[in-house]
Amino acid sequence: MNRPAVDIRGVSMVFAGKRRGETIPTLDNVSAQVPEGQFVCIVGPSGCGKSTLLNIVAGFLAPSAGSVTVEGERVTGPDPRRIFVFQENGVFPWLTVRDNVGFGLLRRAADERARAVAHYIEMVGLTGFEGAYPRELSGGMRQRVEIARALAASPDIIYMDEPFGALDFITRLKMRADLTRIWQTEKKTILFVTHDIEEAVQLGDRVLVMSKRPGRIVDDVTIDLPRPRDLDAPGYLRARDRIFHAMGMSAHLGETAPV
């Protein structure tokens, strides 16, 4: 096997609690390898440490134990070759859509930058809104701006931390379809954290399932289904039910079932 794009080895994380001496074990010996170009979803119950894991992989947090290697280099901090798309939307409200998308491109020549900006604005479907400010856009459009900003920086890897978590159901479905299309054209490695099992199965080549805190990886499900995915296909339902099961729930009742 080639060198994996992301290599997570034995990562544990312990946070200090509010009271003195209290500790909160958040991640417990997590290991995973992500090959280049793969779309990997990390799913788990809220508070399981999946966002913490992504922040460690992206270099925003240092793990208590273990290491993360990306493209052969040990991660010690954030890097413009890997762009993070934030749950709470990191689009800059003082910049227009155009300037936000071009934010990571200031070192490029002006015409090259303008071309890249226009290209990615079109790709996320925001043509015509180049001069708009984020406050004039809906939540879904703001996430599109952030995705375009990430793509425009031409990173090798994109980390996405519940990017559609704050959006309504219909918008979320639309964003998933568009992200799938974009990933198929751009062929980036994507690590996508979500608490939504359906979302994970619809998007990923592979789903890593985490336990509740302290988070461990309890299942690694390959989703070998053609895109766009048929949500009624037996393979889709099987994968979904397997993940529900791995998280200790029944897909039909949503309640805890003995595993």
């Binding site: 954030p78 413009p80 762009i83 993070f84 934030f86 709470e88 990191g90 800059f92 003082w94 934010f103």
Partner: peptide, 29 residues
């Protein structure tokens, strides 16, 4: 300042001076 703006800016590899000029100043204005 929303921490997410600073983190996004760090992700894009801004130097301290650039971070100040392109994020801290506009965010606080």
């Amino acid at each position: 300042i929303q921490p997410v703006y600073v983190r996004a800016a760090r992700n894009f590899g801004l130097s301290r001076v650039q971070l100040f000029r392109r994020v801290i100043v506009p965010a606080t204005l």
